[in-house]
Write a protein that binds this DNA or RNA. Structure first.
Lengths: 335, 335
DNA sequence: TTGTAGGCGTTATCAA
DNA sequence: TTGATAACGCCTACAA
């Protein structure tokens, strides 16, 4: 009644344990017919390999630690999907470390078990490489293969969303639409460590495109990433705006609040107020919000592949993969 | 230059590996002096045991899986602190599984690695025991020791906050304060699976206490757990309220929004409007919010102990440990 | 109270 | 292309 082991599989398939291990790990040197036999033995026995034994024998943890700010937004969920998908294919486990504040980060880094638990590191949004070099150069094993997602750094593999391009796409389109131009940006964190360029990038792209089109932005607003704050900023904007207005709200959360406020004021979306969001949230389609869609899962999947390449010992210069948002036009900009 | 092993420690301490293992696991049969020698050898070598080897040798995973709804609220962070503290003492690792929707839960349960990764299960807020009995009775090993936190169920160890009492304390106090009585409740999820009784408990306690005092609630409001919604409900309440009003806002998030709205209207907190919150958020003290403080860390620590008892094979009927919120009076109710 | 040796379930190496 | 067999690092009898 014990869980079947690789031995049981080998016996049942009439082969050696080495062979079973080979098919498990996709080693090429296995005849197709034997592979079949082994595979069916595995499914007969409902065998699943014991990851702990694997780790100790292989001398690796077969685990990737993912450090990310929060996990409750659409963006991070989709990213996790992409990451987990890729790592599962490669038989790696994923350990999630939600980073909410500095103290929590330090506790994770200090915990001795973490060092064992990760062959590689995925750092999302925040570039923590400095931390490792500075405070934890000792505690953390040197040169843990790492990949940055949604962030940049020299000498490290990165996969990032081109937010400048996203802003530019919004800017090009907004300039064409006509109407007074406005923008709402997300207030970024103050902590030096927990910092992200996402929104400043969107801004620079947008301003560049608008300027290139010979237009100018009549007003810029800043809101924290919170629906209440967003609503009140939306209200302020509509108080001050010259209609018809075209507004680039640099996150769908902000855009949604603006739609709400505009509707509450009886304005016609797409005519009096045109709104461009950013994120393509699940609800964005239903509300007809023109917005920028980001290939987030693909970015996660790709980041995982970059890390897996490193893990197989590939030496190569650090690369940086760029992903492009694309504009999705809906009714919020088409009266 | 390799990581020191138990062998290295034994050699350095001039003892056998068995002895080292014994001090590592707090086995009593070790002379105090030898224990000292071993301990110093450990620290000299900066030895940390390899958890994977331990897992395979012991036939256990020494890992606890914690399934919780989200990790970005104060409540869950504090709970995690309590849990992790207790499990670390017992040399267990904690794997966090943020549950955001049903599909994610199913993926976790379906993943074979989870079965290996957990000697025990902590289920927070949501009672998922039914799931295991129904759909996953096969996939999931039967009788995984489990503990429910912040939730009830028959036949399972539980540690829960007495929200009825919390509501009652708020009700008793509110009744004494005078003023027209109002309450704001949090809208609970509709999904049958992801359901929690937290807020309905607070409500029944509150209503009971108020009724017992011969008072009655002039109005009840419902808000989703979102600052914007909370603000708008607060506004509606203040539009309709007969002042002076005493409001029980069943979460500090709601209470905060009410304070904001009241101040925006120039009302005097503690005189025109008295507010009782629930949670004792970090900011609650600074804003002088009277609220209910919950011993969340203690609850987490205790839940962990319950689970650890089960893991050592203790047979005993399921117990249910109750934790009591306590009222903290601040200026929001004292004009 | 302590040391020795066998076993846990893999992967990796080396012949065959 | 395969099958033995030696690690991997720890825990746990069993003996001393």
């Amino acid at each position: 009644m014990h869980k079947p082991t690789i031995q049981d599989v080998a016996r049942r398939a009439g082969v050696g344990v080495g062979t079973v291990s080979r098919v498990l790990n996709n080693h090429s040197a296995v005849r197709a017919s034997t592979r079949e036999v082994v595979l069916s033995a595995i499914s007969d026995l409902k065998y699943t390999p014991n990851p702990h034994a694997r780790r100790i024998a292989g001398g690796k943890s077969y685990t990737i630690s993912v450090l990310l700010p929060v996990v409750t937004t659409e963006f991070y969920l989709r990213l996790l999907d992409g990451l987990e998908h890729a790592f599962q294919e490669a038989r790696y486990d994923v350990a999630i470390f939600p980073l909410l504040d500095r103290s929590r980060l330090e506790r994770y880094l200090g915990s001795h078990t973490l060092a064992y638990q990760a062959d590689g590191l995925v750092m999302v949004t925040y570039n923590l490489t400095q931390i490792f070099q500075q405070n934890y150069g000792g505690a953390w094993p040197h040169n843990v293969p790492s990949v940055l997602v949604d962030a940049h750094a020299e000498g490290v593999d990165c996969a990032y969303m081109d937010n400048v391009l996203g802003g530019r796409l919004a800017g090009d389109y907004a300039a064409k639409l006509g109407g007074t131009l406005y923008a709402i940006w997300v207030e970024t964190e103050l902590d030096l460590l927990f910092t992200t360029r996402v929104f400043s990038d969107r801004r620079s792209g947008f301003l560049e495109a608008v300027g290139r089109a010979g237009r100018q932005v009549a007003g810029e607003y800043i809101s924290s990433f919170d629906s209440l704050a967003a609503r009140s900023v939306a209200s302020q904007l509509l108080d001050e705006a010259v209609l018809p207005a075209t507004v680039f709200a640099s996150a769908d959360l902000l855009a949604g609040a603006l739609l709400d406020e505009a509707q509450a004021r009886g304005l016609v979306i797409g005519r009096d107020v045109r709104v461009i969001g950013f994120d393509d949230q699940p609800w964005s389609k239903g509300r007809g919000l023109t917005t920028l869609h980001q290939p987030v899962e693909a970015m996660g999947y790709d980041a995982a592949q970059l890390l897996l390449e490193r893990l197989t010992g590939q030496e190569r210069p650090a690369v940086s993969h760029r992903f492009e948002p694309r504009l999705i036009v809906r009714s919020s900009t088409e009266g």
